[in-house]
Design a protein around this nucleic acid. Structure first.
Lengths: 341, 341
DNA sequence: TTGTAGGCGTTATCAC
DNA sequence: GTGATAACGCCTACAA
């Protein structure tokens, strides 16, 4: 009606206030702390809101309060079997408390992660959630200065400053060896992820190596060159089984590699676990459907999202803190013994 | 320095402007249209930006311009093999143009979708992206009034008002029948998705029915009661194969069902496709790894995200429109003939 | 090419 | 419990 600029064309707090015969700040309070507004006014405001189809403008609210109701998350990828469950549960939990999720993918690139963090900070998110403990120096600097809670997921290194919600990848690597050693296997190989940048997978490999050494067994790491995980698995099986002293058991960096390797072996006439035991990581959806079904370690993907959301909401005061819960951020990985090993 | 309220504590355009000895609007222009700022000023501003570690505040920008650089997307789910690729490619494309993705899940519930849309509108997103053509009346009303581009994905019904980017589910159902009929199968059953709310899957079923009728074959639809897709598939196979005149071929509403069904059959001693042909939908990651590998129809998940992003960016004037491309929004589904049928 | 004035819609602060 | 005022940080409109 007045100014020289046109807004959204939507009703504002002022419109609601005018119609309800109150001041705009009362309308604002009606939404944020209804209990401190008298019932009479509440009813009048509710009517006006309905009549005008009023929707609060969160951009304006975030600007005024310097704390938007968005939480930003950078994750290696959205598709792919690994992180989707984390995103899903994290997002659902936040939505229930009126927060929205801003999402970007890093594809395991620290540079991409840093630029995503930089872009996100411009939204003044209420909190920032990253994946793993490994970041560029620039990212470290940004999160050190960031005036908001920061949570790191999919890793657990409690000595770091940001809150950690995840598990120990080194321990996962060790568990695989322990299981296979317990079954009597000696020549146990490890197939690395061909995807460089997935540094957590290297932690699992390191766990494998250390436990092998402790058993007095010789570590045997195969590094595929194929980018496609199924191809990489095939490449590994071809190399590790078609030799004079083939591997007795193979630990793969993830279930995709394991499935690709096992399939290639089956088509080549190998039998699992008779000719070689196969051990994966991740418990992807298909892993129990393979023939033989895949022995693997289930990662707590969904739980990571839930707990991370809880920690964020606690840090924001949306949810009461439940005491000293630091250690509850270390989540369990479940070894699932199936047919392949 | 001045006010009675504290902001983010970060540098603002004004700080940059002061340090660079220009006005704040020039700094603003430096970011939005650098080419109209003289090179001398550009250098001074760049220096000041670096010195102050300035990050633009997008909430403020969105408020002032009434058009934030966020795009909101409501999708049935993030995890699950279907939509992740769409989200991934959509998000990547947007990020490249400086837009951020706001994401929420509807779980195939129209109520959840509507409340997500309502929440999103408060962010004044630059565009709104939904899934399928089926929405609540409330959602229809909201998007009809919304002052922003709306794109519907995973469906193609050009007569609708919003831009459609997807494919014809009816056609997919018909194709399955055509393929199996061409292979000589007559008693072809269809296994519906146990997930109610997935209305597009019912379109595929309708396509199956219409094509069966055209061939003079009797449609045979099985509706599982198990919620878990693998269990539902098992239930279907048990019912359809363990009877006097078992099905010769089964079309499953998606690859999860198909895999669950096939696995259950294999474990029960059935052989595929000798005893029964198996046909899926979706071409999930595991489908080619099964033994036998799964004949299915690949959905253009990734392309949907790409094209949807392109249409959004075109509607926002970020990317030049490439002529009358309406029909290019109808994407192809590829039938992938493998071993199971 | 650059600057001035003021508003975008909300909320923090202070006063009643 | 309610209201007046100004500020959050940026950008549109207009002027020079």
């Amino acid at each position: 009606m007045s100014g020289k600029r046109k807004g959204l064309g939507r009703a504002t707090v002022h419109d609601v206030a005018k119609l309800a015969g109150v001041s705009s700040i009362t309308v604002s309070r009606y939404f944020k702390q209804p209990e401190i507004v008298s019932e009479a006014l509440r009813d009048r405001i509710a009517e006006a809101v309905a009549a005008l189809d009023y929707l609060p403008n969160h951009a304006a609210g975030g600007l005024a309060s310097t704390r938007g109701r968005v939480v930003a998350m950078v994750i290696p990828n959205i598709s792919g079997p690994i992180f989707a469950n984390t995103i899903q549960s994290f997002s659902d939990e936040l939505n229930q408390h009126g927060y929205q999720l801003l999402l970007a993918s890093s594809y395991f690139s620290m540079e991409k992660e840093e630029s995503a963090v930089r872009a996100f900070l411009g939204w003044s998110p209420a909190a920032l959630v990253l994946t793993s403990q490994y970041h560029s120096e620039g990212t470290e600097r940004l999160i050190a200065k960031a005036a908001m809670p920061v949570v790191e997921t999919w890793d657990y290194v409690p000595e770091r400053k940001p809150v950690q919600v995840g598990f120990s990848h080194v321990e996962v690597g060790r568990q695989s060896v322990e299981y296979l050693h317990g079954k009597g296997y000696k020549r146990i190989a490890y197939v690395q992820n061909s995807l460089i940048g997935d540094l957590s997978a290297l932690d699992r490999r390191d766990g494998y190596i250390s436990r092998m050494n402790e058993y007095g067994l010789e570590p045997w790491v195969f590094v595929p060159t194929q980018a496609d995980p199924f191809e990489a698995g095939r490449q590994a099986v071809n190399s590790l089984l078609l030799r004079q002293r083939p591997a007795e058991a193979i630990v793969f960096a993830n279930d995709n590699l394991a499935a690709g390797g096992m399939l290639a072996g089956l088509r080549a006439g190998k039998r699992f676990p008779e000719d070689c035991a196969i051990f994966g990581f991740g418990n992807y959806a298909f892993s129990e459907m393979l023939l033989p079904s895949l022995t693997t370690i289930r990662s707590p993907a969904r739980e990571i999202g839930e707990v991370a959301a809880l920690r964020v909401l606690q840090a924001l005061g949306e949810v009461p803190a439940d005491g000293p819960v630091q250690h509850l951020n270390l989540l369990d990985c479940e070894l699932i013994a199936r047919e392949s090993a």
